[in-house]
């Protein structure tokens, strides 16, 4: 075609800046022919059409949500987490005994096996294990969730910045994180908690978060660096995308999954770590109740009475399992290739 006039708006897609807005009729015929040819006749990798029909725009998050709802793993995890959350919010629904009321415990009933009166048996002080386990949910879950939230926010955000900006910010943040990595965790937590006189959910959270954020930081940083070097980031830059857009639209969705997985595993680790700190006498203290505290209290006489240790431990395991399942399901749902 040698006539330069042909390259005008007639075949432009959707008109120029002036906004004629007309459909590109000029090239309709060859286009339609080409479209037919491109549709492979049967031999193509046949893939069922999924997600939303063409009428409604799909997005990663809405597609992930559609996908999640169809997954048994997610549904099971969500139901379990729902029950646990309810237990933490309104423990009265699950037991009529108030373990914070000293009158509910009778030393004479100590270390009873499970029975109709005490479904989970009683502990060393003669308190109802079921009631204590149910009421302990709140503190344990608060420690786990809040520490996870703080480490993901702090570590994730710093990791995003360090990985994306590189250079001096990265060097500084990486060195700082390494300093924190070098602190032995038990010793560090003891030290931090020794500053506060009483162990509460919030001091324990603070101690654990201070020590744990560098792990999230490093994972996020590595994932961001991997995503940053991808061609689609170059393509976005070539289109003129801003740094913020590249960071949140292109890099974050591709980097966030590894953090999600680590975060859900860490959640369990934090709940268990709280138990360890309580055992050492610096975590949450009586008369507060937490699973960790219960396990610590029951440990010395475990051979005589196993149930005061086994039940909170089982609840802890179930909770951890539920969150790990949730994390796996969310990670898979956020990966279009696995749908």
């Amino acid at each position: 075609m040698s006539d330069p006039a042909v390259s005008g708006p007639a075949v432009r897609v959707g008109g120029g800046d002036g906004g004629s807005g007309t459909a590109p009729r000029g090239a309709a015929a060859p286009r339609a022919r080409h479209a037919r040819r491109a549709k492979s006749p049967g031999g193509s990798p046949a893939r069922p059409s999924r997600g939303a029909p063409a009428g409604r725009p799909a997005s990663l998050w809405s597609d992930a949500w559609h996908e999640l709802r169809r997954r048994p793993l997610f549904v099971a995890a969500a139901v379990l987490i729902g029950v646990i959350l309810l237990m933490a919010a309104v423990p009265q629904l699950f037991t009529s005994v108030d373990p914070y009321d000293a009158a509910s415990c009778r030393l004479g009933d100590a270390r009873q096996a499970p029975s109709a009166a005490h479904w989970f048996g009683t502990d060393n002080q003669g308190c109802d294990t079921l009631a204590r386990t149910v009421y302990g949910t709140r503190n344990s879950l608060l420690v786990g969730l809040s520490t996870t939230a703080v480490t993901v926010l702090v570590g994730g955000l710093l990791g995003l910045v360090a990985g994306f900006r590189g250079g001096l910010p990265d060097a500084l943040l990486s060195r700082v994180s390494e300093v924190f990595f070098a602190i032995p965790s038990v010793l560090g937590a003891l030290l931090i908690l020794a500053v506060f006189r009483t162990g509460t959910v919030w001091t324990v959270m603070l101690a654990l978060a201070v020590l744990a954020w560098p792990m999230t930081f490093r994972i996020m940083r590595a994932a961001v660096i991997a995503a940053r070097g991808q061609d689609y980031v170059v393509a976005a830059r070539a289109l003129g995308a801003s740094g913020r857009r590249i960071m949140f639209r292109h890099i974050l969705p591709n980097a966030v999954t590894s953090v999600i997985v680590v975060a859900t595993v860490n959640l369990g680790v934090f709940i268990a770590a709280e138990a360890g700190l309580s055992f050492l006498g610096v975590g949450i203290q009586s008369p507060e109740i937490s699973w960790g505290l219960m396990i610590a209290d029951a440990r010395p006489r475990f051979l005589e009475a196993a149930s005061p240790l086994l039940f909170p431990a089982a609840f802890l395991s179930l909770t951890v399992l539920a969150f790990i399942m949730l994390g796996d399901a969310v990670r898979d749902a956020l990966d279009p290739k696995l749908r």
């Binding site: 040819r37 492979s40 006749p41 049967g42 031999g43 193509s44 990798p45 046949a46």
Partner: peptide, 11 residues
């Protein structure tokens, strides 16, 4: 025209 066959589902 078209694409190579899908080895999972050979015609």
């Amino acid at each position: 025209a078209g694409m190579p066959p899908n080895l999972l589902d050979m015609p």
